[in-house]
Design a protein around this nucleic acid. Structure first.
Lengths: 249, 249
DNA sequence: TGCTTATATTACTCACGGGTAAGAAAAAGT
DNA sequence: ACTTTTTCTTACCCGTGAGTAATATAAGCA
């Protein structure tokens, strides 16, 4: 609260905070491990024994941090949803045309789909959750859908987007984006950033009115500036898994 | 083989064929029931006991027709894949521009996604299959992906499609389509035909060159001819489930 | 009518994995 | 040093659901 002497003082409170922090770090570690395993093997095939094993502990230890397997699943989902809520709030607060907001949404959403917690939003099955949690998830999904439709409707209203059915447009766009969560895997040739750039353009160009069109599409062989710049990301060590071996479906 | 007297003759072969047919019909009935249950509840939550129960038989009876639960899953998938193979072969054999083929593919694929067996192509998890079957599925998925890319490349070559990256375009389009299998449900306000028409146009308009553009987009409120004509499909009896309550994700 | 084969049932096995109980080991607090 | 609390382990329970064995029933067939 008030100005306590820096961090090195042996305040009686420090250990307490340390413990809290340590606990939260362990919780997070569990979630990181769990989300990876769930994505790798699928929720039902993944066992808590293996989650624990990867953390060098045993299964019952997990129950110090979570009430059940389903609880872990839900928390993984919640972390992904938090990201989405975050950038939607930011875009909502920005001053842009409907088309601009839609582009920003597509971009951020695409990037999120390329993260573990983001992918969990579309790869986890709400039917694995308790009724109460499933309800929360359904509400959140509805919220995302309505955000897409709202931006499109706004764009039509402000003239940046051609008149069209917001519902179908939202379905088509969200489908493309959600599918990223199914095919993207780290270490492939496509970086999240490059994907986000490409999709932001690709999924909105068809909707833009002539007045609000982007300058021009970059010529084919040239990689986009941003992705080219960020492309030489230091590859993860033993990532032999190649990306996109041809799995559209 | 040769011209046996019509169907009413008490040929000694008839009973045999009848039995064969009866058996195949039962097999199909199992698959229809199973695919519905698997889609409803998810493969892991669905039990063979319930599949059997819905057929008014008991679980072990199923093992007269299938070797395992996984076998049933795979056969459901195979029926969907058969549909896809069918229309791809037809389109491959047709004389059209790349864009034309792509449109046809999108249309047929969208319609298929609105069927149970079609949806099973994207909603069943290949990791639930034996390694051998999983391999078959992976190969088939690759085939579909490459068909999309091929038509796009053809379109670029013949000038009907603007130069673009076939890989990314295919991902975007297939994502939209595959997602139909996740949100579509019978009895909703959107008919498969209307969806297919809309998507065929929506997902290809952005790729078309100026020279090959379609006449014009139909005005918003008017339903398309085809869908309006086919719309009054006799609704299934107790289908209270409403479609698209706002689930984009 | 009896013989054979296909099909179904009842009653069971069994592996698996989520979750719990009891208590050890470590850390924090005094 | 002693107590208390947190964290973790070993050892277990137990529901579930796929798959099987033994057997009954029904249908083809002579």
């Amino acid at each position: 609260m008030d100005g306590r002497p820096a961090t090195d003082q042996p305040s009686p409170w420090m250990p307490f905070e340390n413990r809290r922090r340590a606990r939260d770090e362990k919780r997070e570690a569990v979630l990181r491990t769990a989300v990876q395993l769930f994505l790798e093997q699928g929720y039902h095939r993944a066992t808590l024994n293996e989650v624990a094993e990867r953390l060098n502990i045993t299964k019952p230890a997990l129950y110090n941090y979570f009430r059940s397997k389903e609880d872990i699943l839900f928390e993984c989902w919640a972390l992904g949803q938090e990201q989405v809520d975050g950038f939607i709030a930011a875009i909502d607060g920005s001053r842009q045309t409907g088309l601009g907001k839609l582009r920003a949404l597509v971009h951020s959403y695409a990037e999120t789909m390329a993260t573990d917690f983001g992918a969990s939003l579309v790869r986890f099955d709400p039917r694995d959750l308790s009724p109460a949690n499933a309800k929360i998830v359904r509400a959140a999904k509805r919220g995302i859908d309505q955000t897409f439709r709202r931006y499109i409707a706004e764009g039509i209203a402000d003239g940046s987007i051609k008149p069209c059915d917001p519902k179908m447009a939202a379905f088509a766009i969200a489908g493309s984006l959600n599918w990223i969560g199914h095919w993207y895997q780290r270490g492939g040739e496509l970086t999240p950033d490059a994907i986000a750039d490409d999709f932001a353009e690709r999924l909105t160009e068809g909707l833009a009115t002539a007045a609000s069109k982007r300058p021009a599409r970059k010529p084919p062989p040239t990689k986009t500036k941003k992705s080219a710049a960020k492309a030489p990301t230091p590859r993860k060590k033993n990532n032999t898994k190649r990306n996109t071996p041809g799995r559209t479906a």
